[in-house]
């Protein structure tokens, strides 16, 4: 603190309890105000593979798969947009199925096979879908992009596997990767930059769909 008076501990704060003076002392000498606590929370071991690599972790059971990837394994390609299943930025593949990794606990994935964007491709070895996204500018800020790409890869497989969608005309006929099918199925991945039309072009190219 350089005493400019613009950032001072208020009197009210001092009166409110002991915390302010503790904070003040900390600010002056930049020492931790509390000793580190050992967590008195149960910890669970969990093992799964991520992008083919076996991983074993000891985790607070509250840790989501998303935070496990981002914070514990430092695989930050998977994004957190909402943490509540409302955006799709956290999409990863588990045993080949795309899921929102924010709404799943890591401990629920014992033995699972997790694929993240880092496992889809790398800057030097782009997956066809990643290349198509670059070519068609299927992104802007890039924050929703890993989730979009993981979803896009899975969507083409879902269509192949005959999983119906809201726009499937005939439930019993063979699913085809039309533009409308892809748009509907990608709708769990929000892009506020609004790259949808370009993502659609990128996917159409990979799926070999004309226009």
């Amino acid at each position: 603190m350089n005493g400019s008076g613009k950032w001072r501990v208020s009197r009210r704060g001092v009166l409110a309890g002991g915390s302010a003076s503790a904070a003040m002392a900390t600010m002056l000498d930049a020492q931790p105000s509390h000793p580190r606590r050992q967590a008195d929370i149960p910890v669970y071991d969990v093992s799964f593979t991520v992008n083919g690599e076996p991983r074993t972790l000891s985790l607070d059971p509250r840790t989501t798969l998303l935070d496990t990837l981002r914070e514990h394994l430092q695989l930050t390609g998977t994004k957190k947009g909402c943490d509540h299943g409302q955006c799709g930025a956290c999409t990863v593949l588990v045993d080949g199925f795309r899921i929102n990794s924010c709404l799943s606990l890591a401990v629920m994935h014992e033995g699972d096979r997790v694929t993240t964007i880092e496992g889809v491709g790398s800057p030097d070895h782009l997956h066809a879908m990643q290349r198509a996204f670059v070519q068609h500018d299927g992104f802007q800020c890039g924050y929703c992009t890993p989730g979009q790409i993981c979803s896009a890869v899975a969507v083409l497989k879902e269509i192949e596997a005959g999983v119906p969608s809201h726009v499937t005309e005939d439930l019993t006929a063979t699913c085809v990767p039309s533009r409308a099918e892809m748009r509907e199925r990608m709708s769990g991945n929000i892009c506020r930059c609004g790259a949808y039309a370009n993502i659609s072009d990128a996917m159409a190219e990979v799926a070999g769909v004309n226009v």
Binding site: V9, G13, T26
Partner: peptide, 27 residues
Amino acid sequence: KAIDLREARAAAGVIGTVSTLDYSPLA
């Protein structure tokens, strides 16, 4: 009127708290 941080500070893993009452409004 008051912010009681005691429970929060005693919780597992907590290393510090900051309360708005400790400061004047930042410019």
